[in-house]
Design a protein around this nucleic acid. Structure first.
Lengths: 123, 123
DNA sequence: TTGATAGTTCAACAAACGTTGAACATAGGG
DNA sequence: CCCTATGTTCAACGTTTGTTGAACTATCAA
């Protein structure tokens, strides 16, 4: 598979694009899941999101998240590891990412941020 | 003109809809302009946004902003007065509106949040 | 080399979106 | 009453979006 894909620089990150990206339920769930995992490890790979949708649809959303500057992708063998661009986002838009994630957490069930099986596992 | 249009209740306000609404440049400019005016008077009428786009296009965006719970419209004679639903938004999504407005302010010129003539007037 | 695994790319399609202008409704002033 | 100002609604349009499945690429392990 090709090399590590292009990402915007910090200064190229645009507010409307970020908000638009976060407004899609699947992408919000991806960002939320990344944020939840952050204390443990800052990275997750594509397969960790398979519960959210099909692989090709996820690839589409990953690309959007990358293009708008929300995520960074690192290629390692046959895996791609993704992490939130927290530093860049906090620098550009202070408090925004946290506010979104906190708000999303409050509505977690309404938003189906967790996949069905995870909910079952937790219960 | 018909009666005052329907608005969602506080609990009906949904995060993805709010983010999607804010991701449009014209709507972001409307919200920003309302937020700027807040200390002075919490309301502006439709005509105050005429620099942003045509009247029918603005009516379309006003409807979106109302439907997602960002704004409230009050009918007074031939005017409609609009204000941000700050209390409701802060209750549902603490810090979100402020983070968006602060971020928008930082990029004010890049985002064309102010109309051309306002910029000229200021210069 | 063969096969399996991980993920991307492409073409297709329906649905939703933003913009326009024309028509409409309503209220207020002469 | 007529006229104007304010704002909405409607139909039309081209564009962008999200989703699908099939084809593809690349890496690793046996």
């Amino acid at each position: 598979m090709s090399r590590t894909p292009p990402h915007p620089t910090r200064e190229q990150i645009e507010l409307p694009m970020v908000l638009d990206c976060l407004s899609d339920p699947i992408r919000l769930a991806i960002v939320y899941q990344l944020a939840q995992q952050e204390p443990v490890s800052s990275e997750l790979c594509c397969g960790d999101f398979n519960a959210l949708s099909g692989k090709s649809n996820l690839a589409y959303h990953f690309a959007k998240l990358r293009e708008c500057g929300l995520m960074q992708t690192r290629v390692a063998g046959t895996n791609r590891f993704m992490r939130l661009r927290r530093e860049d986002l906090d620098a550009r838009f202070p408090g925004l990412l946290d506010a979104v994630i906190t708000s999303a957490a409050k509505d977690a069930d309404r938003l189906r941020l967790v996949s069905e099986c995870e909910v079952v596992d937790a219960g």
